[in-house]
Nucleic acid binder design. Structure first.
Lengths: 64, 64
DNA sequence: CCCCAATGTAATATATATATTGCATAATGT
DNA sequence: ACATTATGCAATATATATATTACATTGGGG
């Protein structure tokens, strides 16, 4: 299941996958895989992503 | 940094570490280490823990 | 002071998150 | 048609989350 909220939040900030990856210290592949829903990221990475995008864990990663 | 909110939420439900571990399908050591703050759990495990305790990601894992 | 239940902690093994490199594809502009 | 930019995707390597087993420690009840 894709993470559409993450992708939308990133695009709202006009960031490329590579931009977000740089901001949180991972590679663009990792961001791509998380958006594709193929990964089970660690809590720290989720929190870093949230902070980079001005969102909370529930905003981006809580399953509705 | 210890995760006091997780421990409190578990105790509010009168669950031992082993109970929570069983509920989410990990070992009690894993729960203990997460409460101790020594671990960087995966998102799926965080979500499983939240559901078992009736809390959200922000409730238990968002840094205040 | 003992038990016993709950938790801490450590060593090693396994699964998997992430990195690295490289190439393919889609879209956009010239 | 060509070049460029963003993204997808695959193979292999490394770091680390988690399992397993075992033993130590703490705290409450008899």
């Amino acid at each position: 299941m894709k993470n559409k909220r993450l992708r939308m939040a990133r695009l709202e900030r006009n960031m490329k996958q590579a931009d977000l990856a740089n901001a949180v210290g991972v590679t663009r592949q990792t961001i791509g895989l998380i958006e594709a829903g193929d990964y089970n990221p660690t809590l720290k990475l989720c929190i870093s992503i949230c902070k980079a995008l001005g969102k909370s864990l529930d905003d981006l990663f809580w399953e509705g």
